[in-house]
Design a protein around this nucleic acid. Structure first.
Length: 429
RNA sequence: CGGGGAGUGGUGUAACGGCUAACAUGCCCGCUUUGGGUGCGGGUGACUCCGGGUUCGAAUCCCGGCUCCCCGACCA
């Protein structure tokens, strides 16, 4: 895409009502727009990043047998009353409204109940399970206090997967597969080294649930981690008894701030029983379905990535999630140089590289500053100087290092691959 | 939901109860500049969040409301 036609412009000044680094940078760079407290819109750059994250999650969900669907945001109270999550005690999280035809309606903040209800139409026999469905969907939560930029919002995209198994044994296999898939997601988006599977408060059917916590200074949770074993315990359940149960030594633990990027829950029959989701077993007897739920918030993930990869002056995002893989800058006044840059831009696009081409008539300094801010990990510069040598300057912003390359697509693409460009990005060119 | 803070051009700020609400940035025009937000000149842009009140006079003081931010509580 040519930057001259990009919807957004960068901003030099930081919006005063944002404190979180992720929101400051993402607003300045033109990724997001704040609609109101805890509610953000995604602009073209932000949406491209979000879509890349979604795509990675989708691939990993497919790899463990997930089938994508999309459920409604509007919710009927009926089904929630059966689980006790509509009444006055449990409802602070709800956004509610009324149907003009009469009756209440809620805006979904999770989907255990409706998916359980829906699956009654599709699960009848032990032959029908296991089954895994997931969706990317906007959730609404009436948070009393939104905070931390896009990390805790009232409207947000969530990937939620629900598993339906015959029994606990069958469930345990998938649960571990999903945990592994989650770690692959976090690794692919650049958070692998800092993300720990973390014991957290469980539910009716297990001692613990598993959270995935990424260590960042801005994290809102406190965890105790064992760096050697690569596992952690959320402070809220970190007692002597817990540590003994999971085999961790108090002295090995570090206390750090972290942000929750995913969680997986064993639900057991917590929802299948009240909502009457059963299957007929091999002996002809009805059995409740054994369920689990698994969540990742793609937008929050982007926030955490920016917290990790951002600085005050800008950011360098991992290739896998940056809105474009390369930022091509044309410098200098000469028409020949610009034409060379323009030709290179078109060639790279034809070869499947998603490149943002700064073709604007602004100063060199402004182009560099924007490049630093927008956070695309590879910078390509065509200037009078490089053009005279028929070269292009290639900068790996993440690892550092600058070199001159021939202006051939093959040479540039192989250099791109060395720094992590993969064919996935090609869909975005 | 408890506590604290704040609302002034698009953005960031200034203005003792008193002149036509100032400055920077952005945006537009002209020239200049082209490897780090170049410089100069001209221009555009604000019912000072809303509603009451006090006063000869309110951006400024008082009351109410709304919104935003921070801390806490809350948080599948």
């Amino acid at each position: 895409m040519k930057q001259s036609v990009l919807v957004t412009k960068t901003r030099k000044e930081v919006p005063v009502d944002e404190v979180a680094r992720n929101a400051k940078l993402l607003i300045r760079a033109g990724y997001i727009h704040k609609t109101m407290a805890g509610v953000y819109s995604f602009l073209p750059l932000g949406l491209r990043s979000l879509e890349k994250i979604i795509r990675i999650i989708r691939e990993e969900m497919i790899s463990i047998g997930g089938q994508e669907l999309s459920m409604s945001g509007l919710q009927s109270p009926d089904v929630w009353e059966k689980s006790g999550r509509w009444g006055d005690d449990a409802d602070e999280i709800w956004f509610r409204s009324h149907l003009s035809a009469g009756g209440d309606v809620g805006f979904g903040w999770t989907h255990e109940e409706p998916v359980t209800e829906m699956m009654r139409n599709h699960i009848h026999s032990y032959r029908d399970v296991p089954l895994y469905v997931y969706q990317f969907q906007t959730k609404f939560r009436n948070e009393k206090r939104a905070k931390s930029g896009i990390m805790r919002t009232r409207e947000f995209m969530m990937k939620d997967l629900y598993s339906f198994c015959a029994d606990e044994e069958q469930h345990a296999v998938f649960y571990e597969q999903c945990a592994e898939a989650y770690m692959r997601v976090f690794t692919r988006v650049g958070l692998g080294d800092d993300t720990y599977r973390t014991f957290a408060s469980g539910g009716a059917f297990s001692d613990f649930s598993d959270e995935f916590q990424t260590v960042i200074p801005a994290g809102e949770d406190t965890i105790y981690l064992d760096p050697k074993k690569k596992i952690a315990v959320n402070e809220e359940v970190c007692t002597d008894e817990t540590l003994e149960k999971i085999g961790l030594q108090k002295n090995d633990l570090e206390r750090v701030a972290a942000s929750e990027v995913g969680n997986i829950f064993t639900l057991g029959t917590k929802y299948s029983e009240p909502l009457d989701l059963t299957y007929t077993d091999a002996h002809g007897k009805p059995q409740p379905v054994f369920m689990g739920s698994y969540g990742i918030g793609p937008a929050r993930l982007l926030g955490v990535i920016v917290e990790k990869y951002g600085e005050d002056s800008g950011m360098s995002l991992p290739m896998s999630v940056a809105p474009f893989s390369a930022h091509l800058i044309a410098l200098g006044d000469s028409k020949e140089t610009f034409t060379a840059a323009d030709m290179l831009y078109r060639m790279l696009q034809e070869h499947g590289l998603d490149v943002l081409f700064d073709d604007r008539d602004v100063s060199a300094g402004e182009k560099f500053a924007d490049c630093d801010l927008i956070g695309i990990p590879v910078r390509l510069v065509v200037s009078d100087k490089t053009h005279a040598q028929k070269k292009v300057e290639f900068t790996d912003k993440v690892n550092g290092g600058e070199r001159l390359l021939d202006t051939t697509p093959d040479g540039i693409l192989s250099a791109m691959k060395e720094v992590g460009f993969s064919p996935i990005q090609q869909a975005y060119a």
